[in-house]
Design a binder for these strands. Structure first.
Lengths: 108, 108
DNA sequence: GTCAGTTTATTGCAATGCAAGGAACTGAAA
DNA sequence: TTTCAGTTCCTTGCATTGCAATAAACTGAC
């Protein structure tokens, strides 16, 4: 495990929550969006356990959709409880980013 | 463990490295500075293991100073190798912060 | 029915925050 | 000298999450 991974803890989850805030996305679309945003290494090995965890906690509404040539895809969108969690994350993220800025922008 | 804790992973370490970039600080001073910056819950239970870890990896120059009424204090300042680690953290932090901004500032 | 391709799911490990508790050092009091 | 209180330093153990690796399940085509 690289030390890069540690910094991601909590952040990736917050971003995924944000991505499905208003529209249903399937895992492949989430991975795409994360990579496009700059999380180039974001993988399904990270996403699936995360989705399962969050779903167990009631953060999603899900639906399945048939496809050609593969098992039906599962789509995720934020539930009410997920929305609360997203807001909590963003508050914490904003505060943390400000704290870091304070420390790094200090003179000397 | 609260979920808050996860977001801190890696970030606290980067901040501590920054604090001792140019001057020797003892643990109590580091805790003070972290709390002042907004990490209100930052504790010695977090700091000491971190200092030991980073010292083992050669990130610090240290010195001891006698005190009244207590064991000698230990002071920490960044070494060359610590400086490299600090820079690596900050690059990663900046990139990550930008990625998060991309995801959260997207329309809709 | 078997096979290849795609999607979903599971298992296990590594790293770090942090609580809890303990050890060590000092000066003063007894 | 011994004990005590105060302060500082250190250690142990657990919880959480990212992520690699692997397996399972579903589908259409041959």
């Amino acid at each position: 495990m690289t030390s890069d991974t540690q910094l991601n803890k909590g952040i990736l989850e917050g971003c995924v929550l944000r991505l499905v805030k208003t529209k249903y996305l399937c895992p492949a679309e989430i991975v795409d969006a994360m990579r496009t945003a700059g999380f180039a290494e974001f993988s399904e090995g990270t996403l699936y356990p995360m989705l399962l965890r969050l779903e167990k906690e009631g953060c999603f509404e899900t639906k399945r959709q048939a496809t050609r040539n593969s098992p039906p895809k599962k789509f995720y969108r934020l539930s009410e409880s997920g929305r609360a969690r997203l807001e909590q994350f963003y508050r914490l993220w904003s505060a943390t980013a400000q704290n870091v800025a304070k420390i790094f922008n200090d003179e000397e």
